[in-house]
Amino acid sequence: MDLPFLLYTLLKIVVVVFALLTAVAYTVWFERKVVAHMQSRWGPTRVGPYGLLQPLADVIKLITKEDITPSGVFRLVYLAAPCLAVITALLVFAVIPFGPRTEMGGIDIFQITDLDIGLLFILSVSSMGVYGIALAGWSSNSKYSLLGGLRSSAQMISYELAMGLSIVGVVLLTGSLSLRQVVDNQSGSWWGIIPHWNVIPQFIGFFCYFVSAIAETNRLPFDLPEAETELVAGYHTEYSSMRFAMFFLAEYTNMTAVSCVATVLYFGGWSGPVFGPEALQTVLPLLWFFLKVLAFLFVYVWIRGTLPRFRYDQLMAFGWKFLLPLALANMVLTSFVQAVRYGG
């Protein structure tokens, strides 16, 4: 643990967090723009060309607004909950590989750290994400918040199971929990044209993963914790100003995280055609990664613009009676095929 290593790692973290926060701000712009066009509107147009400076204006507005703490809240938890939500959302990016191993001074620059248990790390961090929401709902001293918090904890626990089980399929194919190895395992192609991506053998697993990931991030059609028509705004009803913005930030960071994980697990990560001079060859994988993540974010917005919200009992029934058995069946099937392929 020498000094240059620490400095490099800190630098990587700063760069990733900065890029991520910018990306998240523009995800909001992207969502507003895409949904607007789906609904025959223009979306943000006033601030900057194509409304491109809108995120900046939003941030300034949110920071300068008055921060109201309602009476009767449990202050410490009330203040800590949004921080918890943001921290757990950001932590996922510690293990995401953005590009192939590229060394600069003996240190990999495209990934903060390559853990042996990368996938488990992601699962454990995202399983802690529920606390931000549940504690926010509890400490706000409001009926709507409490109901929102309760709904979200029930929903997140239910869908986490299906998510964990669907990922097992990928682990079985790879034989490792390290995200870099998962991506390396997907290089190459079948018959020179079909990329060797996990989504092809694991299409059931991918379906389960993506559906439960949408539920985990509380997005439509699973956004019952903050269903406006029933719960005002759910767990963040009582939050204002920057604390509200932190929940907002956590939600969009989680969306980006899910898109990154889905890209890494099922769509070959940074793999894609690489050509041209050396400088281009270094940058191209990053571009492919970015485009894949963008495609997932588009799907998120697309689903939001298309589907109505589930009823609560439908949500639970769908999670427990359909998604979980499907993920289990996929796991059994995959392990059977792997056993036949590699077993004696």
Partner: peptide, 26 residues
Amino acid sequence: AEFLAAVQVIVYIGGITVLFLFVIML
């Protein structure tokens, strides 16, 4: 023991304690 640490977090913190919290809030 990274595996145990991760499982500890997933099972106890992410699962069982959330259920505790869930019940207590009701």
